[in-house]
Structures are given as structure tokens and as C-alpha cells.
């Protein structure tokens, strides 16, 4: 207490094994591609710990995982998912399909039901039928497949914007027409960049850098991606699904 006394109040003393490290992640599925993005700031309280700590990870040539929440749990979780995928590769001589990775993640999260990984996961990639897909999870493994999802510190800022721009919520189609089910890649990238610049403007835990992973279905031309500023291919083969990463700067204040 300000007067120097502190004996009377109830004494609560417990080690807290969790913290929050800020940042935001986002994924949008197209017809034959998926974009998975996250900012690169890591913070605790009002301190920026680093301006570059990746939250988005390539798992296979068709799956990318974004993790957000408690960074130590996130990194450990990604490490364990990657390990399980390697074991799968050794056992079956192929990469695990996306929907199987999604179920694996739910199982791994639920296994920690009573001491959860304090992490929100968004898995994006290409399904076996060649369609773009996004799976989103809560910390204990509830999950669903969606077309788009935002999570993390600025979820409340970004998700309604996505409802409007991706699902065309509250918008009426022109007479005799209907809204497109999927947007082209260039539109999706523009919406992702706008979402993050907006979130950076209004949320202190978002900023510094933006990493956008693009997963392209097998055989889809990389039209526009090769020429894009800061785009870089990180696929391990060039006859399957392909993964690109695009990096952009965000405001650092």
C-alpha cells in the first residue's frame, strides 16, 4: 500500500506459467490457393521484445501453420507438429494431407486439455482435391474449416473487416448477379495487407513486419507472384503444390 503497509490483504502467490506475446495472424482461402499471414512483432506488456519473431511456419509444401498467443507454447507446439509430420513422412513416404494435419493438431491440443497450450492456431494450405482451405483452432482443439479467419491481439479489428470484404456480408450483389465464392490472389493479398496496416494503426501489439505465405495448388500458374516485390519461393519440389513467402514492412511505432 502507498503508506508502506502490506500485511493485511489476502496473500496470493502463485507462479503463472503463461504470458501473452501479442501479434495477430490471419488466413484466407482462395479457390486453388491459400494465404496465411502474421505480423512479426513479439511483445510482453508494453515492451517490444523483438521486431522479427516469425509466427507463421511452413509445415509441408501444401500446409502452413500460424500460431499466436503465448510464444513459448507456440514455438514448442510447432516443433512437435513438425516432428509428428516427419515421423509420418518416414512411415508413409509422403507428406500428410492437410485435413489429416488439422485432425492431428486437434488431437495434440486436446491432449493438453488440463494444461493447455495457450495458443490460437490457424492452419492453411491445399486439400487433396486441390482446393484452398483454412482450419482454425481454439487452444484446446475445437476446430472447423473456413474460408477466412483472423486471430490474436487484433482479431476483433480484423475479423469483421474480413466478413465484409471476403464474405461480402451486408453487401448486395448487382442485379442478376451473385457475389464471387472465391477472390483472385491479387485481391486477397491486397485485403491482407490492408487488414494488417489497419491493425497496426490501431493496435499497439501489431506492427514491425508482415509475412504472408501463399500456398498454390499443383499446376496453378504462379501468375503475378514471381514478379511481386519481396516474393520468394520456398517449395521443396516444383511438381507439387508450391509455397511462397512475401515480406512487407509495417509501421514500427
Amino acid at each position: 500500500m502507498p503508506d508502506g503497509s502490506f500485511a493485511q490483504q489476502p496473500q496470493q502467490r502463485q507462479f503463472n506459467p503463461y504470458t501473452e506475446n501479442g501479434g495477430t495472424i490471419l488466413a484466407i482461402a482462395g479457390a486453388d490457393f491459400t494465404v496465411i499471414a502474421g505480423d512479426t512483432r513479439q511483445s510482453e506488456g508494453y515492451s517490444i521484445q523483438t521486431r522479427y519473431a516469425p509466427k507463421v511456419f511452413r509445415l509441408t509444401d501444401r500446409a502452413v501453420l500460424a500460431v499466436n498467443g503465448f510464444a513459448a507454447d507456440g514455438n514448442m507446439f510447432v516443433k512437435k507438429v513438425k516432428q509428428r509430420l516427419e515421423w509420418y513422412r518416414h512411415a508413409h513416404a509422403k507428406d500428410m494431407p492437410l485435413r489429416a494435419i488439422a485432425r492431428l493438431i486437434q488431437t495434440m491440443l486436446y491432449a493438453q486439455r488440463f494444461f493447455p497450450y495457450y495458443v490460437y492456431n490457424i492452419l492453411g494450405g491445399i486439400e487433396e482435391d486441390g482446393s484452398g482451405a483454412v482450419y482454425s483452432f481454439d487452444p484446446v482443439g475445437s476446430y472447423e474449416r473456413e474460408a477466412c479467419r483472423a486471430a490474436g491481439a487484433a482479431q476483433a479489428l480484423v475479423q469483421p473487416f474480413l466478413d465484409n470484404q471476403i464474405y461480402f456480408k451486408n453487401q448486395m450483389a448487382a442485379a442478376g448477379q451473385s457475389h464471387p465464392l472465391h477472390l483472385p490472389l491479387s485481391d486477397v493479398l491486397a485485403i491482407v495487407i490492408d487488414s494488417f496496416t489497419s491493425a497496426t494503426e490501431r493496435h499497439i501489439e501489431v506492427g514491425d513486419g508482415l509475412e504472408m505465405y501463399v500456398v498454390l495448388a499443383k499446376g496453378r500458374s504462379s501468375q503475378g507472384l514471381d514478379g511481386l516485390r519481396g516474393a520468394q519461393e520456398i517449395s521443396t519440389t516444383n511438381d507439387g503444390d508450391r509455397v511462397f513467402v512475401i515480406r512487407r514492412e509495417l509501421k514500427k511505432d
Binding site: 487484433a154 476483433a156 479489428l157 480484423v158 475479423q159 469483421p160 473487416f161 465484409n164 470484404q165 490492408d194 487488414s195 489497419s198 491493425a199 494503426e201 490501431r202
Partner: peptide, 11 residues
Amino acid sequence: SEKLFGVAEGL
């Protein structure tokens, strides 16, 4: 208000 900030900043 948080949601309004997010959408307004975008639109």
C-alpha cells in the same frame, strides 16, 4: 468499439 475501429480503419 474495437470492431468499429478495425472496420473503419479499413473502409
